[in-house]
Computed example of a mutant assay.
Amino acid sequence: MCDLVARTGRHQQRYENGYRLVAGCVPFKYFSCDENCNIRMKKIIKVLMINSPSGPGLLFPKGGWENDETVEEAAVREAIEEAGVRGDLKKYLNDYDFRSKNLQDEFSPEGWCKASMFALYVNEELDSWPEQEKRERKWLTIPEASQLCRHSWMKDALDKFAEYYDTDDDNDDPPGR
Rank of each mutant, 00 (worst) to 15 (best):
V47K: 02
Y121N: 13
L120T: 06
R135F: 03
W112H: 14
K114N: 14
E81W: 00
L21C: 10
N123K: 05
F60G: 02
K91E: 12
Y165K: 05
N38S: 07
D127W: 07
G84P: 02
S128D: 12
C33I: 04
G24K: 08
W112M: 15
N67I: 15
E72C: 03
L58T: 03
P130G: 02
W112I: 09
W153I: 11
W153M: 12
Y165S: 06
A23R: 08
W129E: 01
M154T: 06
S32T: 12
P61G: 01
D127Y: 07
C25Q: 11
I44N: 13
N94I: 06
A74K: 06
G111W: 07
V85L: 05
M41P: 00
F107Q: 14
Y121M: 06
E125R: 05
D172G: 14
L103A: 13
E81F: 00
T70Y: 02
D170C: 12
E133Q: 10
F161K: 02
L126H: 03
R135Q: 10
L158G: 05
A157I: 11
K62F: 10
R20W: 08
Y19W: 05
I44W: 08
D127G: 13
R135D: 02
N51R: 04
I39C: 01
F107E: 12
G84F: 04
A79N: 02
I45K: 10
W65E: 03
R40F: 11
M154I: 09
L21K: 12
P175R: 09
R99I: 15
R40T: 06
Y30M: 15
T70D: 04
L103G: 01
K62P: 00
E69A: 11
A157M: 10
M41Q: 14
R40E: 09
H151W: 13
K29E: 15
L48G: 01
F118I: 08
E81K: 01
G9Y: 02
H11E: 10
N17R: 14
N38W: 00
P175N: 07
L126D: 07
T70E: 06
S128N: 13
Q12V: 03
A83Q: 04
F118G: 04
G176A: 11
L21P: 06
E82F: 02
I39M: 04
V71K: 01
V71Y: 01
R137N: 01
P130A: 00
P56K: 10
Y164L: 13
R14P: 05
L120M: 10
E136K: 12
N94L: 13
K155L: 07
V47Q: 04
T70W: 03
R40G: 00
